[in-house]
Design a protein around this nucleic acid. Structure first.
Length: 571
DNA sequence: GCCGTTTTCGGCCCGACTGTTTTCAGTCG
């Protein structure tokens, strides 16, 4: 049972307790523990084996006992008992917009409804409107909510959401004179790997004018909600965009509040209360008197904290670090001096080596490693040693033209199902940088796939492990890799672990990056580009590294060309 | 159910919006 599965059970319990009408803090406690298990960056089974469940924040005596039962036996009596009381279909009703725990319970207890489909049927028969607290409008909203649920878009990748947000901001700035400032907020500003909706903020003294402007943008399909400070719309592509408007004097508080995360904000408000302040999106209050903040930095300063970068705002220790002046100096995109993982038309890329070189130079890089696939990856037209030498000749030719830039030759060598590499050592030793990756047998059980990675890392010619966990967001779960062992061997052998920047990979993820950083394991942020534009994905990789508290010194492609070559030669 | 340089018990964040209400409950973020 992996972290995700354990967390999902805790989330499920939290929902059931809420439907039952238990005190809300119990549900909050379960959800907080589940969040922390997801953010652990290590396997919950290992934590359990080490007898350290209680060290997970939010896990106390009662939860540790339940987790022990769950991990030991694969079952949890308490959970099964709850599921007898509250059918899973009733929990599923919570996904319907406007249906929360109270309403779900009402539908179950009063009408005996057991599923979303049941609710839809009862709604169409007009049976919901007579329930206490509901009426004709609520009934219609619930039916519309079920419709929306069926065509709902799942969480979308960061790399999809960013361009859309930029487009809307551009349209607002161009077409809306009442607007004074505008920015992205929410999980998108925190650069989470996936986001559910786009949050935008505007400072303006004329909110109504801004709202008019917003709902009339051509991208907008329908207006879901319209108020004086908040408006939500659905775009033609199904994405929801929320816009909030406040006057400029409150903009700092607004931005801080709607950047979140929710947990970060809760912790910040607790800290505020300790200092006799009450904090909301409108500003601070002391004894009922308002204290307005127009910029975000001064919101944090008011609490005696330095400004905290949005990528850190997950309540994973950033507030404590800020208090003690121990915030990391996060890596920036401008620190990146090269890319260690780029494909060309020699394998499955579409750009020539010359085109890649031009794009890399335009980004101000000192170097880029051509790391095409190797022979056994047939679908990607992987390179044989002979083809590699032909490619080397072209790289050498091109390098003669460059003054302050160098193309390096590498390869993304296959780690085969038995753990051996796809090219012999004498070939690997000729390459400048070797990335080794798994593209097959991703579902092997834990011991086997972990051993594969470890034997690759122990090869002295292997410099980097590409996309170590093999996840594809929304499509494929990460492999069962034992990351504790992989991190330990990476440290021991000096092997670099990749932060792959392709938006639906972002692998390693933020939690594992944080562990690697804490241990001193070296990282490389790579675009894994398959065309010239693909180099720009670096932005998402750097953002993910920042979410993992990485500084420039943790990432090898912030090194100069000579420093990098020195490093890989001495592996 | 968790947690503690104020606490081992009594706290545990804040407000908008909506629909159903005669002053508020539920949902959402």
């Amino acid at each position: 049972m992996n972290n995700r599965q354990v967390a999902d059970i805790l989330y499920d319990i939290a929902d059931m307790l809420e439907i039952k009408g238990e005190i809300i803090y119990k549900s909050i406690a379960y959800r907080r523990a589940a969040d922390n298990i997801l953010n652990l960056g290590r396997d919950i089974n290992d934590v359990w084996r080490d007898g350290k469940l209680r060290e997970i924040p939010g896990v106390g005596e009662a939860l540790a006992k339940k987790l022990d039962e769950l991990l030991r036996t694969g079952r949890l009596g308490y959970y099964e008992g709850l599921r007898e009381e509250i059918p899973p279909g009733v929990v599923a009703m919570l996904a319907i917009p406007d249906v929360g725990p109270k309403t779900a319970n009402l539908l179950y207890e009063r009408l005996g409804l057991m599923s979303v489909a049941d609710v839809g049927r009862a709604g169409r028969e007009g049976k919901l409107r007579d329930l206490p607290g509901l009426g004709v409008k609520s009934e219609a909203n619930i039916l519309a909510g079920i419709e929306a649920l069926h065509r709902r878009t799942d969480r979308i990748p960061l790399g999809t959401a960013w361009p859309v947000a930029r487009e809307i901001l551009g349209a607002l700035r161009a077409g809306c004179s009442a607007l004074q400032q505008a920015t992205v907020a929410g999980s998108l500003r925190r650069m989470k790997a996936t986001i559910r909706d786009i949050d935008l903020l505007v400072a303006s003294d004329e909110p109504e004018a801004v709202m008019d402007c917003f709902v009339n943008l051509p991208l907008v399909e329908e207006v879901a909600l319209r108020g004086s400070t908040k408006t939500s719309v659905i775009l033609h592509n199904g994405l929801q965009v929320d816009l909030r408007v406040l006057e400029p004097a409150r903009y700092g508080s607004l931005l801080q509040y709607f950047t979140g995360s929710k947990d970060h904000n809760v912790a910040l408000r607790e800290l505020s209360l300790d200092q006799g302040l009450s904090l909301s999106e409108y500003g601070f209050k002391r004894d009922g008197e308002e204290i307005l903040r127009s910029d975000e930095e001064s919101v944090y300063n008011t609490l005696g904290l330095p400004w905290i970068p949005p990528e850190l705002r997950e309540n994973r220790g950033e507030i404590e670090a800020a208090r003690r002046g121990k915030l990391p100096k996060l890596i920036e995109l401008s620190d990146i001096k090269g890319d260690l993982h780029v494909h060309t038309s020699w394998s499955d890329g579409v750009a020539s080596i010359a085109e890649i070189a031009e794009a890399a130079r335009a980004r101000g890089y000192q170097y880029a490693v051509m790391s095409d696939h190797t022979q056994s990856l047939g679908v990607a037209r992987g390179l044989t040693p002979e083809r590699l030498w032909e490619q080397r000749a072209e790289i050498n030719r091109l390098n003669e033209q460059f003054a302050n830039f160098r193309l390096l030759q590498g390869a993304e060598v296959e780690i085969k199902a038995d753990g051996s590499l796809d090219l012999p050592d004498e070939v690997l030793s000729e390459l400048d940088v070797v990335v080794a990756s798994i593209h097959s047998g991703l579902r092997q059980e834990r011991e086997r796939i972990t051993s594969r990675l470890i034997s690759a890392m122990r090869n002295p010619h292997v410099d980097v492990i590409g996309h170590p966990r093999g996840r594809i967001l929304g499509q494929r779960e990460a492999s069962a890799v034992d990351m504790d062992r992989v991190l330990a061997v990476a440290l021991e052998t000096g092997t670099i672990l990749e932060v792959n920047a392709i938006p639906d990979r972002l692998d390693l993820d933020d939690a594992h990056i944080r562990r690697a950083v804490g241990m001193g394991v070296r990282l490389a942020v790579d675009s894994d580009a398959h065309n010239a534009e693909g180099l720009a994905a670096m932005e998402y990789g750097v953002a993910t590294a920042r979410r993992g508290w990485a500084e420039a010194e943790n990432v090898v492609n912030t090194l100069s060309l000579n420093e990098l070559l020195e490093l890989v030669r001495n592996k």
